[in-house]
Design a protein around this nucleic acid. Structure first.
Length: 212
DNA sequence: GCTAATCTAATCAACCTCCGGTTGATTAGCACATTAGC
C-alpha cells in the first residue's frame, strides 16, 4: 500500500529516521534469536535491545522485516481453542501474556498529541522525538499513537465521509468529486501536490481529508 | 466497548557497489487488519 504518488514520496521521506545499521555481532545475536523464536514477546525484545544496545522498536522492525522476507506464514485469522495444543509457535508465544503494558495517556498528553496530529499528520522523526520528550513517552508510542488518535471520533468522521460517498460525493481539500478518477484528473490538471495526499483512502488520510 | 499493541503486506529509500540487491523505515489495513488490556 503506501505511497505511490510523487507528492506522497516527498511527504513520507521528509524526516525519515536514519537507517540503522546493525553490526555483524548485533546481527548474529538477532539471527540466533530469530531462529529460536521468530515472534518474541515484549520482554524478549527488551532483553535483546539491551543485549545489542539498540532500541526495542528497532528490534521489532527487524523481526517484522525478517518474518516478511523469510517466508513466515500469515498470522492465522481463526481464534484458537486454548484447550487444544495445536497452536502455531507464534500463537504459543504471542498469546497476550507478553505484550507491552498498555499505555494510558493523560488528558494533557492526549491534547498535545491531538494538536500535533492536527498540525501535521505525518511528523518526521525529529518532531516525533520532540513530542515524545515533551509528553514523556517513548518515540515509538508517538509514532503509533498519531494515526490512531481518537479512533471513536475518527470512526464518526469516517462515517460522515462514507455518508458523503453514498451521496456520490467525496471531498479532498476544497475539491468535491464523484470518483477517484475525477480526483486524479483534477490533480493532474491542477498539479495540486498538497491535495494529492487525499487520494489514498486510509485512516490517516481520511482524517487529513476531513480536516481534523 | 474502546483502543493500544501487534501483526502482515506493500512500498519507499539508504547503502553498497555499479545498477540492482539487500534491508531498515514507513504506511495501510475497508462491506472497516487482529488481539487483548483497561
Amino acid at each position: 500500500m503506501g505511497q505511490d504518488s510523487p507528492s506522497d514520496k516527498t511527504m513520507v521521506t521528509k524526516g525519515r529516521r536514519s537507517r540503522t545499521s546493525f553490526t555483524e555481532e548485533q546481527l548474529e545475536i538477532l539471527v540466533q534469536a530469530f531462529s529460536q523464536n521468530p515472534y518474541p514477546g515484549y520482554t524478549a525484545k527488551q532483553r535483546l535491545a539491551v543485549e545489542i544496545n539498540a532500541e526495542e522498536s528497532r528490534i521489532q522492525i527487524w523481526f517484522q522485516n525478517r518474518r516478511a522476507r523469510h517466508g513466515f506464514l500469515k498470522r492465522p485469522k481463526k481464534k484458537l481453542d486454548p484447550s487444544k495444543d495445536h497452536a502455531s509457535p507464534k500463537e504459543k508465544i504471542q498469546d497476550g501474556r507478553d505484550r507491552r503494558c498498555r499505555t494510558s495517556y493523560t488528558s494533557s498528553q492526549l491534547q498535545t498529541l491531538k494538536n500535533a496530529f492536527t498540525e501535521n499528520p505525518y511528523p518526521g522523526i525529529d518532531s516525533r522525538e520532540q513530542l515524545a520528550e515533551k509528553i514523556g513517552v517513548p518515540e515509538s508510542r508517538v509514532q503509533l499513537f498519531l494515526p490512531e488518535t481518537g479512533m471513536a471520533q475518527k470512526d464518526q468522521e469516517m462515517k460522515n465521509i462514507q455518508e458523503k460517498t453514498n451521496q456520490n460525493t467525496h471531498i479532498a481539500g476544497n475539491f468535491e468529486y464523484k470518483s477517484v478518477l475525477d480526483l486524479k484528473l483534477y490533480l493532474s490538471e491542477t498539479e495540486d501536490t498538497v491535495a494529492t495526499q487525499h487520494v489514498t483512502f486510509s485512516k490517516r488520510s481520511a482524517v487529513v481529508a476531513s480536516g481534523v
